[in-house]
Amino acid sequence: MTALLEVEGLAKHFPVRRGLLQRVQGHVKAVDGVSFRLAAGETLAVVGESGCGKSTLGRLVLRLIEPTAGAVRWRGEDIFGLPPARMRALRREMQIVFQDPYASLNPRLTVGQMLAEPLMLHGIARGAAAAARVTELLALVGLAPEHARRYPHEFSGGQRQRIGIARALAAGPRLLVGDEPVSALDVSIRAQVVNLLQDLQRRLGLAYLFVSHDLGVVRHIADRVAVMYLGRIVETAPKAALYAGPRHPYTAALLAAIPVADPRLKRDRPILEGDVPSPMAPPPGCRFHTRCAHAVDRCRSEVPPLDQDGDGHAVACWRWRELAPLPSAAAEGVPPDARLAALQGAFRRRAGIRAGA
């Protein structure tokens, strides 16, 4: 499968300045040597605990912030070497949906003005043509034409996120980066927005880089999953393979932490001990070894590479072959976020949409 997006050795180290002269005292290694590929029409979910570098990675991919090292190639072209005019033209093809649907919308502009703005900036449409495109975008995300005259505060959280999605789609992108796009919504609205994203992907052929800490939602939307810990990818695999048989102890712990609304169910879950190390001073070797029950001396001194198995499953762990299989949510018969799945099905039936359509 031809890659639409290629990320190689991507790193971002933020300087930490202290004192009266604001001298650099160290660096926060938010992203530290990340590589992956994303094909057209594919959804890659990036998951991990808060502070692992997921959102920073999404912004680096769009060149919203400049990297410390590495490359991002969009259809073979390195975006970090592009002049401003070429980069601006490229932004039509790469857009983002933010986590907070209210903070990401301008309260002084109507919805129609917000959706028309990217059309004018990129020279796509003006006047009556722009108004017609705004109506089309609102219909695409399930909103009415009269909503174009309203302001963001007049909408619910789910409607505001639909507006954010419509704005991202205005310029006709091929890639959407979703920075926790449903985490601020309650579960019923979350199901509707996940349905919308999946339907838009099928209709428009979009590729998604879906940043999330919610593995229940990820199971419903992703094709592949990349697990991040302290700025590095520790495991990546097709969704079914990762949920059925996680190979990294950190991935197994994340899956086991998915809550289940059944007080009678008893689960033997691995409990992570200790705190996440500081990204200013990550531990040597495997960065997870300070919290891993299976760590040996080699883990504390040597950095494990992402070991590929030939079937699209890669894991950065020296001991994964001898530890496999690790317990997983799928092995316990626990469907992650079963309530979300039920609500998705109900909303699809109400809308007359088949699950596989």
Rank of each mutant, 00 (worst) to 15 (best):
M1P: 14
L5G: 09
E6S: 15
V7N: 06
E8F: 04
E8G: 07
A11M: 09
K12S: 02
P15T: 07
L21A: 15
V24D: 12
G26H: 08
H27D: 01
G33R: 01
G33Y: 10
V34P: 10
A39R: 14
A39F: 04
L57I: 05
V61H: 00
I79V: 15
L82Q: 05
L82V: 03
R91I: 13
V97T: 07
D100P: 03
P107H: 09
A116M: 12
P118Q: 10
L119W: 01
H122K: 02
R126M: 08
A129N: 04
A130G: 06
A131N: 12
E136Q: 15
L140E: 11
G142F: 11
L143F: 09
A148T: 07
R150T: 04
Y151F: 15
G158M: 04
Q159F: 05
R162L: 07
R162T: 07
I165W: 08
A166H: 02
A166T: 09
P173G: 08
G178D: 02
P181N: 08
V182N: 02
S183N: 13
S183V: 10
A184Q: 10
V194D: 01
L196G: 13
Q201T: 05
Q201R: 15
Q201I: 01
G205P: 07
V211R: 00
S212H: 04
H220K: 14
D223N: 15
D223C: 05
Y229P: 00
G231E: 06
R232H: 09
E235V: 08
A237Q: 03
A252F: 03
A252M: 02
A256S: 14
R267W: 13
L272Y: 01
E273H: 15
G274N: 09
G274F: 00
P277W: 13
P282N: 13
P282F: 10
F288G: 00
F288C: 03
A293F: 04
A293K: 09
H294F: 15
V296A: 14
R298M: 09
C299M: 07
P305Q: 06
D309Q: 12
D309L: 14
D311C: 12
H313Q: 05
W318G: 08
P327Y: 07
A330Q: 15
G333Q: 03
V334P: 12
P335I: 00
P336H: 02
D337K: 01
A338W: 08
A346C: 00
R348I: 02
R350A: 15
R354A: 15
A357I: 11
